[in-house]
Amino acid sequence: MPDDQNVAHELREALRPLYRRLNNARTMSLGKAGILTLLAERGRATAAQLATAQQITPQGVTSALNELESQQLIERVPDDVDRRRIWVHVTEEGRRRLEDDRAAGQSWLVDALTERLDDEERRIVRAALPVLRKITEDSADA
């Protein structure tokens, strides 16, 4: 197990600057971007569903939704049948802002991959992607 601890440490240290660089140009917090991403990919949701999916408190979601709504990135719509239930939808402006946020880091990463890595190194990175996804999928399901 000591080797696993070393690998975990090295992986974290290797990913930290990459993570910072990718998020450096963001115009909104990762939490708000996560909410917009969920809404854009899955459609409408309630605040409680968003809190569960994002693993944050209901108060945290409410605060984030208030800010997103003030920027017209989401809209809240009462349910047709149960007026107490409020659905949250991403707006077209929200989709655009989310895409702009993603594109900022993406451009830097594409340049870094093509300028700093040779073909074999890019192949290795590509081959590692399913393994890295497996790590996060397992931890999200736990």
Rank of each mutant, 00 (worst) to 15 (best):
D101H: 04
D82M: 08
G60R: 03
R76A: 01
T57A: 04
R97F: 12
D79M: 04
R116D: 03
P2V: 15
V90E: 06
T62L: 13
R126H: 12
T114M: 15
E10Q: 13
I35T: 04
R97Q: 13
Q5E: 14
R76H: 01
D3T: 15
L38A: 08
R95M: 02
I35W: 06
R44A: 04
L109D: 03
R42E: 03
R42H: 04
R20Y: 14
R96H: 10
D111V: 11
L15F: 14
A104L: 08
T136R: 07
V90S: 08
G34H: 01
L50G: 00
A103Q: 15
R97D: 13
T52I: 11
A33P: 09
E75G: 06
N24H: 14
A8Y: 12
E93G: 13
A47K: 06
A140F: 05
R133N: 13
P17V: 02
Y19Q: 14
E75T: 10
R21M: 06
M28A: 10
A104V: 03
R84A: 12
R44I: 01
P17G: 03
A53T: 01
R83W: 12
Y19W: 12
R84H: 10
R122T: 00
R133I: 14
T114A: 12
R85H: 08
P130F: 01
P58G: 07
A45T: 01
V88Y: 07
S63Y: 12
L109T: 05
D79R: 02
V110S: 10
R83N: 11
L18R: 04
A128L: 08
S70C: 03
T62C: 10
R116P: 03
L39K: 00
L22P: 05
A53M: 03
Q72T: 15
A104G: 06
D101C: 05
